Simulated scan of single mutants.
Amino acid sequence: MKTVAVVAGLAVAANAHATWQYLWKNGEDLGSTCVRKVPSNSPVEDYTGTALQCNVNPADAEGNCEFAAGDTVTIEMHQHDTRSSTEEAIGGAHWGPVLAYMASVEDAAAATGAEDFFKVYQNTWAKAPGSTQGDNDFWGTKDLNYNGGKLDFKIPADLAPGDYLLRAEAIALHAASASGGAQHYVACYQLTVTGSGSLKPTDTVTFPSAYTKTGPGLGFSIHAPLDSYPAPGPALIESGTESTPQLLTFGTIESAPSATAAPSTASKPASSAASATPVASSPPASSSTAAQTSAAASAPVTAIAEPAPSSSAASPSATPSTPTAEQKYTIAEFIAFLEKADAADDSAAIKKARRHARAFRV
């Protein structure tokens, strides 16, 4: 038999990426009505084309979501077309900032994404006590992961009424270096803002020219000690929302909305008043143990699938057999195992097998 090393992990490849899929208003679930959904959960890495505007070939949104200036908007990301809060929103230790931009447009449905954007939200980086490398620090994407894929901010209270594009972005820096390598996960939402404000920000940028692969916050490695982090793009506007990342382990930012597949479910939005103090909370019983800490996420992983805890295990008749020791698979057998697992159960053991397989023997 021949051993095939899968550096990035064949099973991990599909799980490490993500897309912005849903939106909330003041705790009300608006579903995906105003998002321009993208056909792939792969990142944008091209700084020359138009993909950094609203991603590659986004679909038309169903319509606009109406917000009053000052309302709370919650953006929601997931790896797959599911709203599971026990799966990392963006997997594979993809640590980096989460940003949001808005652009004033005449007609949100007709806007291309080439318009002038201003920054209304950023959740970037904070030093973790005792950390010796950036991987182990606080990051916006850690808050995103461990808050069920949801982060929130305010529509600026003084913003002039009209149509806007809202551009949500998570930037993964795990593969970045001085020569580039950052990964951008982007989507645009169509909004109509009401109110009596008059603000029309002039500190604007266009994409892709707002970024370069070696620019601030992008062209460096997070696998070394960090003393500071320059947020990519322009400065946050004065009435924008600045959040300090706070989560290192699975938890819930206070008052986060509960994910639900049905729109118009009332729930309080995720808190934007984050602090530099981590939220101490245990992982959910069905959560992948790979996401317990940022240090664990960067530690070596194996191809051994561990049995699920008894609190989340399904009955033997409903759950496919999960190996408790290293197993030898052909590629086809491993894929068949994953498909059977997906169809039968959502146990932590199977999710761990999917995320952490590093090699297959054929």
Rank of each mutant, 00 (worst) to 15 (best):
T3Q: 13
T3C: 11
A5L: 10
A5M: 08
A14H: 06
A14C: 08
A14S: 10
H17R: 06
T19S: 13
L23C: 08
G27L: 06
L30I: 05
S32R: 03
T33V: 13
K37Q: 15
K37N: 10
P39H: 08
P39S: 10
T50N: 08
P58E: 06
C65E: 02
E66G: 11
E76H: 14
E76W: 07
Q79M: 14
I90E: 02
W95L: 04
L99P: 09
L99H: 04
L99S: 05
A110E: 07
A111Q: 02
A114G: 12
F117D: 01
K119A: 13
Y121W: 09
N123I: 07
N123Q: 11
T124C: 12
K127A: 01
S131N: 04
N136C: 03
D137R: 00
K142N: 11
N147V: 05
N147S: 10
G149A: 10
D152F: 06
L159M: 14
L166I: 05
A178N: 08
S179N: 12
S179C: 03
G180K: 03
A182T: 01
Q190H: 06
L191T: 04
T192Y: 03
S196Y: 13
G197V: 11
L199D: 10
K200N: 14
T204G: 09
V205D: 09
K213I: 00
L218A: 02
L218I: 15
L218W: 02
P225V: 00
Y229G: 05
A231H: 08
P232H: 00
P232V: 07
G233K: 00
S239P: 12
T244F: 00
P245R: 02
P245E: 04
L248K: 06
T249K: 09
G251H: 02
T252Y: 00
S255R: 05
P257Q: 05
A259F: 06
T260G: 10
A262S: 15
P263A: 10
K268C: 08
S271D: 04
S271E: 01
S272A: 14
S272T: 07
V279E: 02
A280T: 12
A290H: 11
A295F: 04
A297Q: 14
A297M: 15
A297L: 13
A297C: 14
S298V: 14
A299K: 13
A299G: 15
V301D: 12
P307R: 04
P309Y: 04
S310V: 12
T319W: 04
T319S: 15
Q327D: 11
Y329G: 02
I331W: 11
I331A: 14
A332L: 09
F334T: 01
E339I: 07
K340V: 03
S347K: 02
K352R: 15
